[in-house]
């Protein structure tokens, strides 16, 4: 949890504040969030964050050689959640993998 005075996300990305709950690690937490979300929620998250991805990457590149400050790290984790759900919106156009097994069988704590 952010300290009292610390912004949760970098100032330039305060519009993504409603999606802070997607700033998750490790991979298992992002997979569980994906499984627990409705397609409406997933699409809303994707539609808002996807157009910001280029700006997010450019912002984060400044920190690539240093430990990221916590707000930047949360932004980074949101980008990982975006690619976690990208397939559902862009290719499957539904919440489930076609003829797939339970996705939690592929949940990983690493």
């Amino acid at each position: 949890m952010p300290a009292i005075d610390e912004p949760s996300l970098p100032e330039e990305f305060s519009d993504l504040q409603p999606y802070l709950e997607w700033a998750l690690e490790p991979e298992r937490a992002r997979t569980e969030m994906r499984v627990a979300s409705s397609m409406v929620e997933i699409r809303d998250f994707y539609d808002t964050v996807q157009p910001r991805l280029e700006a997010m990457i450019r912002y984060l590149e400044d920190f690539r050689d240093d430990p990221m400050p916590a707000p930047a790290h949360r932004l980074y984790l949101i980008s990982l959640s975006l690619v976690e759900v990208a397939n559902l919106v862009e290719l499957y156009k539904r919440r489930e993998v076609f003829e797939g097994c339970d996705p939690l069988r592929y949940a990983s704590d690493q």
């Binding site: 690619v83 397939n87 993998v97 592929y106």
Partner: peptide, 23 residues
Amino acid sequence: VRERIRQEYFKCISRDTLQEDTA
């Protein structure tokens, strides 16, 4: 960072494909 997120994206796509395979 772009390459790191690209790797994560590829991993997620692969994982979805592997879920099709397991079933």
